[in-house]
Structure formats: structure tokens, C-alpha cells
């Protein structure tokens, strides 16, 4: 079963064509890593998938239901706001800059959406929140505020916050890029645990090592297109396209 299907997505910002016909299908339990040079449209693709940006053309379905569909003339037409809201709840999103709510404690950060959006009781929400904090190794930070945590801890809270909504798929946009190198490990470990539990994940990342170990499929994007995709070893160890090869050599050279 496909958790997410995106077909022939086009997206421009004014004159700038950022996505030029991207198609992506994600099966339940799959972990997909998206790599590619800066400006290739990776973030934009993720943002289109959960409608932080609207697409110009193409089709997106989530667990088989249309979020947006192309008309005959190619124009993208979105479903009703009510349907979209329901479908978007199935997707969790983790940002590069965490975007925790600074005025809420760690526990409150995890409880607010279940309570406001899903009308879960406070007790129930707190129980779920504490379990999730335990899972990301931050049970003892429940009553702290985000500013009191390290970047790595903040990102783990952000992951737990997304999980609190019990999503069918988790999207990560360079979750470790804003972190000091010594803090990336703890975040990647949490993500690896999620993958082992068969959480469906799309991860935009510069961590080639993580992609190699954890991803079922690696997608290389460049200039708004998927240039190459396949298993981690196919794409990372034996790339067929010249652009993939040159990207990988610069990335691997840099470390």
C-alpha cells in the first residue's frame, strides 16, 4: 500500500521553476533519503507534499486519497479544506530549525496539538507525551523549556512532538544541518530507531552515512528533477548518472 503518491509535480516561484515534474511513491514502512545539491528543490518538494507550499501541476494522494489532483488542462486543483486538513494530519514534519514553541515546556510542546486538534484529554495527552519523551531519551527534560536544551535535544523533542500526532509518514528536512557535528549522532539514532519500528519516512539529508545505513531507497535530485534513484548501494556506491557521481564526490571529499 502506498502511504504517499506524488505524480508529476510542478512548482514555480514566480519565474523560477523549482520542481519540473517530480514523481515519488512511498510504500508503508519505507525509508527514503533525498540527497542533492543546494537549491535543487529538496525542501520545496517536502513542503509541497504537506502543503506548506501549493503546487502548480500534478497529483498528490495520501493513503490513497487525493489531496490535490490535476485537471485535464494540467492545472492542480486541491480538495476541500476539510479533507486536506484531515490528510495533512497523517504527515509529521521535522524542520531544520526545530521550530519548537519557546513559551511552552517540552511536555506542553508535545501535548498541545493532540489536545487542540484531536481533542485528546489532558491526561491522555500527557501520558502519550511522556512515553514519547522516554523514547527519544528526554524523559527527565519534560518540564524544561526549549531554550534550556541543546540543539540535539531540541530536535529530538521536535521529533517526539510530530510523533505525538501519530502520523502515517514522517518528513524530515535536513534535521541535523543546524546542529554541531557532535550532536548529530543522538538525532540520527532516534531516527534510526524509528526506521527499525517501520515508520514510513522521507528524509532530506546531507548525511550520506545515514542514508546508506538506514534508507531503503535513495533519491538524488538536481535542478528540480529526480536524476537517479535506487537502493542505497546502487545510488551511493555505484551511481550511473554523471551528476550523481560529481555530487557524491564533492560531498564525500568535504568530509
Amino acid at each position: 500500500m502506498y502511504v504517499l503518491q506524488a505524480n508529476d509535480i510542478y512548482k514555480s516561484f514566480g519565474q523560477l521553476k523549482v520542481l519540473k515534474g517530480v514523481s515519488l511513491e512511498v510504500k508503508k514502512g519505507e525509508v527514503i533519503a533525498i540527497i542533492g545539491p543546494s537549491g535543487s528543490g529538496k525542501s520545496t518538494l517536502l513542503r509541497c507534499l504537506n502543503r506548506l507550499e501549493t503546487i502548480d501541476r500534478g497529483t498528490i494522494t495520501i493513503t490513497g486519497e487525493y489531496m490535490v489532483k490535476s485537471e485535464k488542462d494540467g492545472r492542480a486543483v486541491y480538495s476541500s479544506e476539510k479533507d486536506i486538513t484531515r490528510l495533512r494530519r497523517k504527515m509529521g514534519m521535522v524542520f531544520q530549525n526545530f521550530n519548537l514553541f519557546p513559551h511552552k515546556s517540552v511536555l506542553e510542546n508535545l501535548m498541545i496539538a493532540p489536545m487542540l486538534v484531536n481533542q485528546v484529554s489532558a491526561d491522555q495527552a500527557e501520558e502519550t507525551a511522556r512515553n514519547l519523551l522516554d523514547k527519544v531519551g528526554l524523559a527527565q527534560k519534560a518540564n524544561n523549556y526549549p531554550f534550556e536544551l541543546s540543539g540535539g535535544q531540541q530536535q529530538r523533542v521536535a521529533i517526539a512532538r510530530a510523533l505525538a500526532m501519530n502520523p502515517d509518514i514522517m518528513c524530515f528536512d535536513e534535521p541535523t544541518s543546524a546542529l554541531d557535528p557532535e550532536l548529530t549522532g543522538e538525532v540520527l539514532r532516534v531516527m534510526r530507531d524509528l526506521a527499525l519500528e517501520h515508520m514510513t519516512m522521507i528524509v532530506v539529508t546531507h548525511e550520506i552515512g545515514f542514508a546508506r545505513e538506514v534508507a531503503n531507497r535513495v533519491i538524488f535530485m538536481d535542478e528540480g528533477l529526480i536524476v537517479e534513484q535506487g537502493t542505497a548501494s546502487e545510488v551511493l556506491l555505484n551511481p550511473q548518472q554523471e551528476r550523481t557521481q560529481s555530487f557524491l564526490s564533492t560531498v564525500l571529499m568535504a568530509r
Binding site: 509529521g92 524542520f95 514553541f101 496539538a113 486538534v117 510530530a162
Partner: peptide
């Protein structure tokens, strides 16, 4: 207030009103 606060609230499913009253205005 950083745009990321709106986006985080948005992807969590908060309505515009909830985002304003619970996330943005207190800050």
C-alpha cells in the same frame, strides 16, 4: 515572530485561530 512558528503549528494541524491565540500572541 519567526515564520517557522506558523509552519510548525500548521503542520501539527492547528487552525489559524488556534495558532494566533496559542502560539503567536503569547510570544
Amino acid at each position: 515572530i519567526d515564520r517557522g512558528q506558523y509552519e510548525a503549528a500548521d503542520v501539527l494541524g492547528l487552525s489559524r485561530r488556534q495558532t494566533m491565540t496559542q502560539i503567536i500572541l503569547p510570544q
